[in-house]
């Protein structure tokens, strides 16, 4: 009886461990970081698009944040440490990349809005 119980628990845990072992952390090789991702961000009349969309990128993949704004401001990237990207009215492109896997939120603190969240995979 005791052995059955332990066996059942172990079988269940082995199932989980086995499934997780299918994934791998090896990540993209050098020179295989993918094409640049372009994210268009538009500030107009006190609002911003996109509106909190999730965007999948890879570690080290070049990201072009193309900001088109009708007045100056700044966007914040919640990496550690946080990055502030200031822009003027008009169009400006920020070339950024994230070097640690995780979820990075890009926000406008002035509008108190999440613009996009980057899901950065290894």
């Amino acid at each position: 009886m005791q052995r059955h119980r332990a066996g059942a628990v172990l079988a269940g845990l082995a199932l989980i461990a086995g499934l997780s072992a299918c994934g791998d952390d090896s990540g993209a090789k050098d020179g295989d970081k993918g094409d640049p991702v372009t994210i268009d961000i538009t500030f107009k009349d006190g609002s911003v698009t996109p509106n909190g969309d999730r965007i999948d990128v890879k570690v080290g993949q070049p990201i072009d944040l193309v900001v088109t704004a009708d007045e100056p401001g700044e966007i914040h990237m919640h990496t550690d440490p946080e990055q502030e990207l200031a822009y003027d009215a008009g169009t400006k492109t920020f070339k950024v990349e994230v070097d640690r896997p995780g979820v990075v939120v890009v926000e406008s603190h002035a509008l108190d809005k999440t613009i996009v969240s980057l899901k950065v995979e290894p």
Binding site: S20, G23, T79, P81, V98, G102, V103, V104, K119, E121
Partner: peptide
């Protein structure tokens, strides 16, 4: 806390 964890698969 800045960057968050990746979601679980």
């Amino acid at each position: 806390g800045g960057q968050a964890d990746l979601p679980i698969p």
